[in-house]
């Protein structure tokens, strides 16, 4: 006798997670964290003069490529915004300190190194542009 109940349970739970996943991934969440600021030595380079977009990537990550292309494209025209791509796996101490749990995660850092926003998953162009224009 076939039992269809486990399928129903699994698909219901997975769908609930899936809708949450689709809604939460890629949106830029504004943060007002008072955690320790990020320094140039953390990210292996100078901060941007207005904003730095610090992207964490990993090997087994399809949207990391799209995110890299998008952020490179956006920052190409903006002299005061810098994009840095960090291999999460090689920087586990930093990953723990900043509580990065999945890739791609993009941190929006202001000129003093304070995290003002965070996008988990591939961010949307319009949202990144809106976030950037709101930072002085």
């Amino acid at each position: 006798m076939d039992n269809y109940l486990p399928i129903l349970i699994v698909l219901t739970l997975a769908s609930a997670y899936g809708f949450w996943y689709q809604r939460s991934r890629g949106t830029v969440k504004v943060k007002s964290s008072t955690k320790t600021a990020i320094t140039p030595s953390d990210i292996g380079g100078e901060l941007g003069s207005r904003v730095t977009l610090v992207q964490f990537s990993s090997t087994f990550c399809t949207p990391c490529r799209a995110t890299r292309a998008l952020l490179t494209d956006i920052t190409a025209d903006l002299d005061d915004v810098k994009h840095i791509d960090i291999d999460a796996e090689k920087n586990l101490d930093l990953v723990r300190r900043l509580d990065i749990r999945s890739t791609p995660t993009t941190l929006v850092i202001d000129k003093s190194g304070v995290e003002v926003g965070r996008a988990v998953g591939a961010p949307k162009r319009a949202e990144v542009l809106a976030t950037l224009s709101a930072i002085k």
Binding site: V10, A14, Y21, T62
Partner: peptide, 17 residues
């Protein structure tokens, strides 16, 4: 199912953890 229906990226969510 998550991969098929929601384009879920397992490596993104699991590998770093």
């Amino acid at each position: 199912f998550l991969n098929a229906a929601f384009n879920f990226c397992l490596g993104c969510e699991m590998y770093l953890l």
